[in-house]
Amino acid sequence: MNNIIEVKDLKKVYHMGKEKIYAVNGVNFTIREGEFCCLLGTSGSGKSTLLNLMAGIEKASKGSIIIKGEDVVKLNETKLAKFRQNYLGFVFQAYNLIGSMNALENVEFPLIFKRVPAGKRKKMAIRMLKRVGLGERLYHKPKEMSGGQQQRVGIARAFVANPQIVFADEPTGNLDTKTTMEVMDLIHDLARRNKQTIVMVTHDPRLAEYGDKIIRVSDGKIVDVEVRKTDEEILNEQMEASRRAEIEKMEKIEKAKEAKRRKEEAKALKAAGHKKEAKTENTEDKKENEQDEQKTDETV
């Protein structure tokens, strides 16, 4: 598999008065396309800085970060913004949802910057929210949702534009154990299905177990790189995931058909009673059914 990210001799220096602090000190590593990569380290190890550097949020002092053949270090603000729109998604520890927007609008938000037309945007966001299991909470504000739900919105926002790379900074840092596992499974599953690359920062070795590759960071340097899955294994998992998705899709279509049948039966019963009313309902029901079908088609 190709390397989607190549980090070469990366350094980040902070100046504290006369003292120089090397947050990242000469780091080299690569990340394969479709890989789930975990940056593992204690707090202050420089793992978060490393992630920020890769996303172009902080400027590197030295070295290069080649993502999709482009050196992020050399991009200016405008090009970086464009780059993020096209290739990157973000999941934050503190969710960072916009408080005044409901779930749907939050998920639509990055698409606004991409100039996606409003109708298409909404469709994409709804599909994504359904995918993360929040189909019933489209119009809830962040305040009205639990931490786990908020992070699901955050994940939907990160994945909605189907970016090739998703950066996740301690995505479960504010969540309890049970929710943590659900969220991790969700991220993993989404990434596998769409063959996306994940770069996740964590301090928890158990969460790092999700990774295909674990990069251990300490004092701004890489201590150890553990490759846990081969290219083949990753490919297999991706195929498995898409097969599962296919099956789920079929099931949903079946379900929709079943529901349609049931509705028609109910209609037939009703029609016997009041003809006129039934007529109007008829057409409405048809419309609804059509919409349902469409939605299930998209819900993958």
Binding site: T78, A81, K82, L88, F90, I98, F109, P110, F113, R157
Partner: peptide, 16 residues
């Protein structure tokens, strides 16, 4: 402040 930061991370141009 935070919201503006988030907007930038999500790909909002500075000029926007």
């Amino acid at each position: 402040t935070k919201e503006i930061g988030v907007m930038k991370v999500l790909g909002c141009y500075v000029r926007d």
